[in-house]
Every structure is written in structure tokens, then in C-alpha cells.
Design a protein around this nucleic acid. Structure first.
Lengths: 133, 133
DNA sequence: GGTGTCTACTCTCTATTGGAAAGTTACCAC
DNA sequence: GTGGTAACTTTCCAATAGAGAGTAGACACC
């Protein structure tokens, strides 16, 4: 077996997976990461920062505990964040991005930023649309 | 009223909107664009290409007609795509990205690409996780 | 004039998911 | 034993996603 560089492996991966195909595992992964809570969680955890559960809950204003826990669990399972329990009293649980998670950071910050910078244009488009239909 | 450059207006917009806040309109917009069908639709429509409804349905394998119509309607309303009806028999309906939609293209292609290139790493992480828990 | 075809929907029904709120566990201080 | 705290977990209901069948309008064929 010849050794491949990381770049070669990545190029190979892109040929093997195609999210346009319904049965491709990358379609399911796309569905998982195309989620506002995933975007906000990764955005909040940017720059290798570590946040506690309660800090994340405060940052992602309005998230339910159930959703936050669910999102963090799936990110942990997918290897995007690490979960560290410190046996203080009461326990503290900290979350940090893994290198894999960090590779998504820029895209997630980009999407959050896009929503913020283009909000007014979208709003204007909606007014125009609603005036006509 | 002093005139602002586009860059100034964009900078201003980023200060005014913050998707971390539950009540901010950009939070709702973030939720709308963090959607696998939105990502795939915009990815399929890349490079100013125009696609018919049936071509999109074929490209986004497995999408239900209801979901596709719903997604296209919301993209149209938000000013991201234009819908053009040509009165042939039967009618043909074509969809194209607007400049606003095109500004999301790279991010959407990026997310789709991320899912494809990192699928194997995520898969490996899941195996590790499931072996332990 | 009845039957069939085509595209782009639209409607209906059921399964899954999301959010709100209350409950749980574990430990310690008083 | 009462209260407080962090990080969940559970329950319930409303909203949404997906599967599948049905519709409209203009033909073309027989």
C-alpha cells in the first residue's frame, strides 16, 4: 500500500463522496452540520476557546437545554468537540473544538456573518415580494 | 445624510445584527439558510447557471417535490433566486441565483465540500465514540 | 371526443423533530 | 433535612419533514 499525503487523501475523499446523492453518507453529514445551533455553537467556541455548558447556554440565547445537550453530544460523537468533566461541586463540564471542529470554524463564522451582513437586503427583498404576491 | 460606501453599510449591518441574540432577525435568517436543501440548491445553481424545476429535482436526489417547491419559494422571497416562467407546453420554470444568492454560493459549496472531504474522519470519530459509550 | 402525456406544482397523511417546562442526580453547606 | 448549584433528562405538545397521490392546462393521437 503506497502512502498518501493528507492532501491526496482529501482529494480522494472528495471523489468518493457526493452530497447530491441521497444515499451518500456525506448527505446525512451535510444535514447534521446545516443547523443553526451547530453554527452558533461552533461560532461561540471559536479560537480554541473553551466554554462551560452554562456559558454556552448564555451565549446561544434562547436555546433549550435539551437542544444544547443534543447538539453538543452529536458534535462530540462526530469528533468536532471534546467534552471534559471536572469533578468540582457541582461538576463543571467544558467544551472545546477539536482540530476537526476548528476546520469548520471559518465556514460557520462565515454563515453567521453572512446572515448578519445581508439581513437588511433580505428584509428588503421580502417586502418587495410580499407587496406583489 | 452622509452617503455611505457599500463597505461602510456592511460594517454597520454587522454591528446592528447579532445572531447570538434570540430576538435578532439575523437569527431567524441563520436558521433559514442553515438547511441542507438550501445548501444543495444553491450549490446546484452555482456559476450563474440556470436550472429548471425538474433538473433541480433530479440533481438534489431524493428531495420531495413539496420540499423543493417550498425551498425555492423561500429562496425567491428572500431574494436569493429568481423564478422565470416560460409559457411553453407544458410550462417550463427556470431558477437562477441573484447576485445576493451568488454571494452565498462559496459558503454553501464550502459546507457541502467540507462534508464530503471530512466524511471519513467523522465516520472514524463515530466508531471510536460508539465503541466506548 | 376520449385517452394519454408532460411539467410543475398542491394536498393529505403520518412520522420525526423542536421547544417549553418540570424533574433528576450528586454533592456540599447550613 | 432544607436549600443551592450545574448539568443534564424527561415529558408533553406544536411545528415541520417526507411519502405519495392528486391537479391544471395544453396539447397529440386515434
Amino acid at each position: 500500500m503506497p502512502t498518501m499525503t493528507a492532501a491526496q487523501r482529501r482529494a480522494r475523499a472528495k471523489e468518493e463522496y457526493d452530497a447530491f446523492l441521497a444515499a451518500c453518507p456525506s448527505r446525512q453529514l451535510l444535514g447534521r452540520i446545516s443547523d443553526k445551533w451547530v453554527a452558533l455553537t461552533i461560532a461561540a467556541l471559536h479560537d480554541g476557546g473553551t466554554l462551560r455548558y452554562s456559558e454556552l447556554a448564555r451565549r446561544l440565547a434562547g436555546v433549550s437545554q435539551k437542544m444544547l445537550t443534543q447538539t453538543l453530544r452529536s458534535l462530540e460523537r462526530d469528533g468536532l468537540v471534546t467534552r471534559t468533566v471536572t469533578p468540582t461541586v457541582p461538576v463543571t463540564v467544558e467544551y472545546t473544538l477539536t482540530p476537526l471542529g476548528a476546520s469548520l470554524q471559518d465556514l460557520m463564522l462565515g454563515i453567521k456573518g453572512w446572515a448578519e451582513t445581508h439581513m437588511s437586503e433580505v428584509h428588503a427583498a421580502r417586502e418587495r415580494y410580499d407587496a406583489i404576491r
